[in-house]
Computed example of a mutant assay.
Amino acid sequence: MRRLLGSTAALLLASCPLAACAGGSDAGGSAASPTSQPDSGYVVSDELVSQTAGDGEIAQVATPLPDQAAVDDFTRGLADSLAAKVDEAVRRTQVASGQQLYGQVVAVGCDVPPAVTVERDPVAVQPEPVTSPKQECFAPVTTVALVVVLD
């Protein structure tokens, strides 16, 4: 099932400032960006958190984030500032009874995915392809997907 983000252009500009992508030295990033439409399947919500020079490695499956200890373990390989953004996004995310929060690093490169697809058993988040990928950038952008799914 395809999940689209609210404003792809705004997300791309916020998560990879022109100076950082075009060879400048700004290592800024974006706060979490929510999707723009509700899901009619088992995905309750999803959100992408991206930052230039955020570190981390792409994962094949999502990690359950049932408590703060799990969030701390999940963010351990990320740059401190991206870990803080992910932690803040997790704290804002509402998870009701019968739902589970997962996190996954879905991209590390010059581009932020415009959307993600969430698969089940095991929960895995796949980034949608970028329409016009950048050929090079000053520093890679790390994108973390946070998804809430029905148990």
Rank of each mutant, 00 (worst) to 15 (best):
Q94F: 07
A19K: 06
P64S: 11
T131F: 08
L78T: 03
A69L: 11
T63H: 05
T117N: 15
G23V: 11
R76F: 08
A14H: 02
P64T: 04
Y42Q: 14
T131P: 04
P129Y: 09
S30V: 04
A89E: 06
C16A: 11
S7A: 11
P64L: 09
A83W: 07
P133S: 02
P66R: 08
E128M: 10
A62T: 01
Y42P: 10
A96K: 15
A9R: 13
R92P: 01
T93G: 01
R120M: 11
Q99D: 01
P34D: 06
Q135Y: 05
G77E: 09
A124K: 14
K134R: 15
G23D: 04
T8H: 12
T35C: 08
C110W: 05
S36D: 10
R91H: 13
P114F: 06
Q51F: 01
A27N: 12
P133Y: 05
L65T: 08
V44R: 12
R92W: 08
Q99M: 01
Q100N: 06
P122W: 00
D67H: 05
P122M: 02
L4H: 12
L101D: 04
A10R: 10
F74N: 02
Q100F: 00
V49P: 05
P127G: 09
L146G: 00
P122Q: 02
A69Y: 05
A20E: 07
A59P: 00
L11M: 14
L82R: 13
L5F: 15
V106M: 06
L150D: 12
D72V: 08
D111I: 01
Q60M: 12
P64K: 06
